[in-house]
Protein backbone atom coordinates (compact mmCIF):
# COMPACT_ATOMS: atom_id res chain seq x y z
CA UNK A 1 0.00 0.00 0.00
CA UNK A 2 1.18 3.49 -0.80
CA UNK A 3 -0.26 6.87 0.07
CA UNK A 4 0.35 9.30 -2.75
CA UNK A 5 -0.06 13.07 -2.62
CA UNK A 6 0.00 14.86 -5.97
CA UNK A 7 0.51 18.59 -6.37
CA UNK A 8 -1.42 19.49 -3.23
CA UNK A 9 -1.96 23.24 -2.81
CA UNK A 10 -3.44 25.35 -0.06
CA UNK A 11 -3.48 29.14 0.26
CA UNK A 12 -4.67 31.35 3.06
CA UNK A 13 -5.50 34.63 1.39
CA UNK A 14 -2.40 35.52 -0.57
CA UNK A 15 -0.12 33.32 1.49
CA UNK A 16 0.80 30.05 -0.20
CA UNK A 17 1.15 27.62 2.67
CA UNK A 18 1.26 24.41 0.65
CA UNK A 19 2.64 25.22 -2.77
CA UNK A 20 3.18 21.91 -4.47
CA UNK A 21 3.22 18.93 -2.14
CA UNK A 22 4.09 15.87 -4.16
CA UNK A 23 5.08 12.75 -2.28
CA UNK A 24 4.59 9.05 -1.96
CA UNK A 25 4.51 7.39 1.49
CA UNK A 26 5.08 3.67 1.84
CA UNK A 27 3.51 1.10 4.11
CA UNK A 28 5.38 -0.03 7.20
CA UNK A 29 7.39 3.13 7.71
CA UNK A 30 7.27 5.94 10.22
CA UNK A 31 7.85 9.30 8.54
CA UNK A 32 9.19 12.16 10.61
CA UNK A 33 7.76 15.41 9.30
CA UNK A 34 10.00 18.35 10.14
CA UNK A 35 9.40 21.96 9.32
CA UNK A 36 9.80 25.36 10.82
CA UNK A 37 7.11 27.09 12.81
CA UNK A 38 4.37 28.09 10.42
CA UNK A 39 5.71 25.86 7.63
CA UNK A 40 2.28 24.25 7.25
CA UNK A 41 2.61 20.87 8.97
CA UNK A 42 -0.75 21.10 10.69
CA UNK A 43 -2.31 22.49 7.51
CA UNK A 44 -1.04 19.47 5.61
CA UNK A 45 -2.56 17.14 8.20
CA UNK A 46 -5.83 19.05 8.16
CA UNK A 47 -5.97 18.75 4.37
CA UNK A 48 -5.33 15.00 4.48
CA UNK A 49 -7.94 14.61 7.23
CA UNK A 50 -10.32 16.73 5.10
CA UNK A 51 -10.85 19.24 7.89
CA UNK A 52 -10.06 21.94 5.37
CA UNK A 53 -10.47 21.79 1.63
CA UNK A 54 -7.32 21.88 -0.48
CA UNK A 55 -7.08 24.46 -3.28
CA UNK A 56 -5.58 22.06 -5.75
CA UNK A 57 -4.04 18.63 -6.23
CA UNK A 58 -5.18 15.29 -4.88
CA UNK A 59 -4.19 12.34 -2.73
CA UNK A 60 -5.07 8.66 -2.89
CA UNK A 61 -4.27 5.24 -1.54
CA UNK A 62 -2.76 2.73 -3.93
CA UNK A 63 -3.25 -0.94 -3.14
CA UNK A 64 -2.38 -3.72 -5.58
CA UNK A 65 -2.07 -1.06 -8.26
CA UNK A 66 -5.61 0.08 -7.63
CA UNK A 67 -6.16 3.68 -6.64
CA UNK A 68 -8.87 4.83 -4.31
CA UNK A 69 -9.69 7.94 -2.37
CA UNK A 70 -9.10 7.54 1.38
CA UNK A 71 -12.33 7.19 3.38
CA UNK A 72 -12.56 8.52 6.93
CA UNK A 73 -11.85 5.05 8.39
CA UNK A 74 -8.47 5.07 6.66
CA UNK A 75 -7.18 7.97 8.68
CA UNK A 76 -6.37 8.32 12.37
CA UNK A 77 -5.38 11.77 13.54
CA UNK A 78 -3.88 12.51 16.96
CA UNK A 79 -3.81 16.24 17.64
CA UNK A 80 -1.18 18.05 19.64
CA UNK A 81 -3.77 19.37 22.06
CA UNK A 82 -5.87 16.38 22.93
CA UNK A 83 -9.59 16.80 22.55
CA UNK A 84 -11.90 14.27 24.11
CA UNK A 85 -15.63 14.50 24.93
CA UNK A 86 -15.46 15.89 28.44
CA UNK A 87 -18.82 14.62 29.59
CA UNK A 88 -17.95 10.93 29.16
CA UNK A 89 -15.83 8.76 31.40
CA UNK A 90 -12.78 7.10 29.89
CA UNK A 91 -14.60 3.77 29.79
CA UNK A 92 -17.75 5.21 28.25
CA UNK A 93 -15.76 6.93 25.54
CA UNK A 94 -14.01 3.70 24.71
CA UNK A 95 -17.27 1.72 24.69
CA UNK A 96 -18.92 4.30 22.45
CA UNK A 97 -15.98 4.23 20.08
CA UNK A 98 -15.98 0.44 19.89
CA UNK A 99 -19.78 0.38 19.35
CA UNK A 100 -19.57 2.80 16.46
CA UNK A 101 -16.63 1.11 14.81
CA UNK A 102 -17.69 -2.47 15.49
CA UNK A 103 -17.52 -3.35 11.83
CA UNK A 104 -13.94 -2.21 11.39
CA UNK A 105 -12.54 -3.39 14.73
CA UNK A 106 -11.48 -7.01 14.35
CA UNK A 107 -11.66 -9.14 17.52
CA UNK A 108 -12.67 -6.41 19.98
CA UNK A 109 -11.39 -7.04 23.50
CA UNK A 110 -12.72 -6.05 26.89
CA UNK A 111 -12.34 -2.36 27.65
CA UNK A 112 -10.07 -3.11 30.60
CA UNK A 113 -7.64 -4.92 28.33
CA UNK A 114 -7.21 -1.75 26.26
CA UNK A 115 -6.75 0.36 29.39
CA UNK A 116 -4.14 -2.10 30.62
CA UNK A 117 -2.27 -1.74 27.34
CA UNK A 118 -2.15 2.03 27.77
CA UNK A 119 -1.37 1.72 31.47
CA UNK A 120 -4.33 3.82 32.49
CA UNK A 121 -4.88 3.18 36.20
CA UNK A 122 -8.02 1.35 37.31
CA UNK A 123 -9.28 4.23 39.44
CA UNK A 124 -9.09 6.60 36.46
CA UNK A 125 -11.09 4.51 34.04
CA UNK A 126 -14.48 5.59 35.40
CA UNK A 127 -13.63 9.25 35.91
CA UNK A 128 -15.08 11.95 33.66
CA UNK A 129 -12.64 12.92 30.92
CA UNK A 130 -12.90 16.56 31.96
CA UNK A 131 -10.99 15.58 35.09
CA UNK A 132 -8.18 13.85 33.18
CA UNK A 133 -4.76 15.47 33.00
CA UNK A 134 -3.34 16.65 29.69
CA UNK A 135 -1.14 13.56 29.36
CA UNK A 136 -4.03 11.23 30.20
CA UNK A 137 -6.27 12.84 27.61
CA UNK A 138 -3.45 12.36 25.15
CA UNK A 139 -3.33 8.66 26.00
CA UNK A 140 -7.07 8.33 25.47
CA UNK A 141 -6.86 10.01 22.12
CA UNK A 142 -3.99 7.80 21.08
CA UNK A 143 -5.86 4.74 22.31
CA UNK A 144 -8.99 5.25 20.25
CA UNK A 145 -6.91 6.04 17.20
CA UNK A 146 -4.94 2.87 17.62
CA UNK A 147 -7.98 0.64 18.18
CA UNK A 148 -9.47 1.70 14.88
CA UNK A 149 -6.29 0.48 13.15
CA UNK A 150 -6.31 3.12 10.44
CA UNK A 151 -4.17 2.73 7.32
CA UNK A 152 -2.72 6.19 7.78
CA UNK A 153 -1.89 7.46 11.26
CA UNK A 154 -1.22 11.20 11.51
CA UNK A 155 0.42 12.37 14.71
CA UNK A 156 0.80 16.09 15.31
CA UNK A 157 3.41 16.68 18.03
CA UNK A 158 1.94 13.91 20.13
CA UNK A 159 4.70 13.25 22.66
CA UNK A 160 5.53 16.79 23.76
CA UNK A 161 3.23 16.84 26.77
CA UNK A 162 4.02 13.36 28.05
CA UNK A 163 6.42 12.61 30.85
CA UNK A 164 9.61 10.71 29.95
CA UNK A 165 8.31 7.28 30.96
CA UNK A 166 5.07 7.76 29.09
CA UNK A 167 6.90 9.08 26.05
CA UNK A 168 9.13 5.97 25.97
CA UNK A 169 6.09 3.71 26.25
CA UNK A 170 4.41 5.59 23.46
CA UNK A 171 7.44 5.33 21.23
CA UNK A 172 7.64 1.57 21.57
CA UNK A 173 3.91 1.41 21.00
CA UNK A 174 4.25 3.34 17.75
CA UNK A 175 7.07 1.10 16.63
CA UNK A 176 4.97 -1.97 17.30
CA UNK A 177 2.11 -0.47 15.32
CA UNK A 178 3.95 0.59 12.23
CA UNK A 179 3.58 -2.70 10.37
CA UNK A 180 0.87 -2.61 7.75
CA UNK A 181 0.27 1.13 7.93
CA UNK A 182 1.76 4.51 7.15
CA UNK A 183 2.64 6.65 10.16
CA UNK A 184 3.37 10.34 9.66
CA UNK A 185 4.72 12.04 12.72
CA UNK A 186 5.25 15.78 12.96
CA UNK A 187 7.63 17.08 15.58
CA UNK A 188 9.99 19.88 16.48
CA UNK A 189 12.27 17.60 18.44
CA UNK A 190 14.94 16.39 16.06
CA UNK A 191 16.33 13.65 18.32
CA UNK A 192 12.88 12.17 18.63
CA UNK A 193 12.50 12.19 14.87
CA UNK A 194 15.88 10.54 14.33
CA UNK A 195 15.22 7.97 17.04
CA UNK A 196 11.74 6.94 15.99
CA UNK A 197 11.35 7.59 12.29
CA UNK A 198 12.47 5.58 9.30
CA UNK A 199 12.44 8.54 6.96
CA UNK A 200 12.85 12.25 7.57
CA UNK A 201 10.71 14.47 5.38
CA UNK A 202 11.04 18.23 5.33
CA UNK A 203 8.20 20.61 4.67
CA UNK A 204 9.76 23.80 3.39
CA UNK A 205 8.74 26.36 0.76
CA UNK A 206 5.37 24.60 0.75
CA UNK A 207 6.90 21.43 -0.62
CA UNK A 208 7.83 18.04 0.81
CA UNK A 209 11.27 16.57 0.29
CA UNK A 210 12.98 13.59 1.79
CA UNK A 211 16.38 14.00 3.43
CA UNK A 212 18.61 11.11 2.34
CA UNK A 213 20.55 9.62 5.22
CA UNK A 214 22.96 7.49 3.14
CA UNK A 215 26.15 6.90 5.03
CA UNK A 216 26.30 10.14 7.02
CA UNK A 217 26.48 9.85 10.80
CA UNK A 218 23.85 11.36 13.08
CA UNK A 219 25.66 14.60 13.66
CA UNK A 220 26.19 15.32 9.97
CA UNK A 221 22.64 14.29 9.26
CA UNK A 222 21.34 16.80 11.79
CA UNK A 223 23.49 19.54 10.30
CA UNK A 224 22.12 18.70 6.91
CA UNK A 225 18.53 18.95 8.10
CA UNK A 226 19.10 22.25 9.86
CA UNK A 227 20.86 23.67 6.82
CA UNK A 228 17.93 22.65 4.64
CA UNK A 229 15.38 24.17 7.01
CA UNK A 230 17.35 27.38 7.36
CA UNK A 231 16.83 28.09 3.71
CA UNK A 232 13.11 28.21 4.29
CA UNK A 233 12.89 31.96 3.95
CA UNK A 234 12.01 32.62 7.57
CA UNK A 235 15.31 34.20 8.43
Amino acid sequence: MRFVIEHLMKNFGEKEVLRDVDFSFEEGKIYGLLGRNGAGKTTLFNCINKDIAADGGCFYLEENEKRREPVPEDIGYVLSTPVVPEFLTGREFLKFFIDINEKSIKNPRRTDAYFDDMRIAREDRDKLLKDYSHGMKNKMQMLVNIIARPNILLLDEPLTSLDVVMAEEMKSLLRSLKKGRITIFSTHIMDLALDLCDEIVLLSHGELEVVEKNSTDDHEFKEKIIAALREDGHE
Binding site: Y77, E86, I100, A148
Partner: peptide
Amino acid sequence: MNCDRSLLTFPFYKQPKS
Protein backbone atom coordinates in the same frame (compact mmCIF):
# COMPACT_ATOMS: atom_id res chain seq x y z
CA MET B 1 -18.48 22.88 23.66
CA ASN B 2 -18.72 19.60 25.48
CA CYS B 3 -19.22 17.10 22.70
CA ASP B 4 -18.82 17.99 19.04
CA ARG B 5 -15.73 20.13 19.49
CA SER B 6 -13.78 17.03 20.45
CA LEU B 7 -15.57 14.31 18.55
CA LEU B 8 -15.48 16.19 15.24
CA THR B 9 -11.74 15.56 15.17
CA PHE B 10 -12.46 11.85 14.72
CA PRO B 11 -13.07 10.64 11.20
CA PHE B 12 -15.87 8.22 12.11
CA TYR B 13 -17.86 11.09 13.59
CA LYS B 14 -17.66 13.15 10.41
CA GLN B 15 -19.16 10.53 8.14
CA PRO B 16 -22.41 11.67 6.57
CA LYS B 17 -24.41 8.81 8.01
CA SER B 18 -23.12 9.55 11.52
